[in-house]
């Protein structure tokens, strides 16, 4: 059963290197928020940190909590809630395939299988060359144009295998 525990202890606890460099950016943002609303800054600061570091660890969350003066567990809860916050290193391109109802009805599952075979990784995994991370996500709010996926910050709709080939080819 020990393997199970490790599986769930994903939040590694690396030291918060590089965080002090971010504090300037934090303060800039903080100026725009009323003092008593520190906890509203939890998400923006997590995002800033992720932009700078690629992914987030528990120690990043603790650093942000200390900076804001909110309980660390509250930041960890937020961090674990959002699929857009990465708790493990991700590849250069993050592919998020919708697995919710409309997309499932229109072949999302099949497309996920196709991507898994093409990239040679299972969902949740990153290719050996570090180029792609393949994730399944809930509704991307493109139900009308399902099946949909998001690559980095770009939406791709009405997907087919051929369209996916083309999208992958065009990526740097």
């Amino acid at each position: 059963m020990s393997c199970l525990k490790e599986k769930f202890d994903r939040l590694t606890t690396n030291g918060p290197e590089g965080m002090s460099a971010l504090v300037d950016k934090f303060s800039e943002l903080r100026g725009g928020y009323p003092e008593e609303m520190a906890s509203s800054l939890v998400l923006p600061l997590l995002q800033l940190t992720q932009e700078a570091k690629g992914h987030l660890t528990e120690s990043d969350a603790v650093f942000i909590a200390d900076y804001l003066g909110v309980p660390a567990m509250q930041v960890v809860e937020a961090l674990s809630w959002y699929t857009m916050l990465y708790r493990e290193p991700v590849g250069r391109h993050v592919i998020k395939v919708c697995r919710n109802i409309s997309c499932s009805l229109t072949g999302g599952g099949r497309l996920m299988g196709y991507l898994e075979r093409r990239l040679g990784v299972r969902q949740g995994g990153t290719t050996a060359d570090g180029r792609f991370t393949l994730l399944a996500v809930e509704c991307l709010a493109s139900c009308g144009t399902a099946p949909a996926m998001q690559v980095n910050d770009t939406y791709h709709e009405r997907l087919t295998e051929a369209r996916i080939d083309q999208i992958l080819k065009e990526l740097p």
């Binding site: 769930f8 202890d9 939040l11 606890t13 528990e58 120690s59 603790v62 309980p71 660390a72 567990m73 509250q74 960890v76 809860e77 674990s80 809630w81």
Partner: peptide
């Protein structure tokens, strides 16, 4: 831990049926 003891040391992480009670791993 939030309302009585005030340690704020527990939380519920993840979502939906994956949710679970947790503490900080590093503490």
């Amino acid at each position: 831990t939030r309302e009585v003891s005030g340690s704020h040391m527990l939380g519920i992480v993840e979502r939906g049926c994956h949710s679970r009670v947790a503490r900080l791993e590093g503490k």
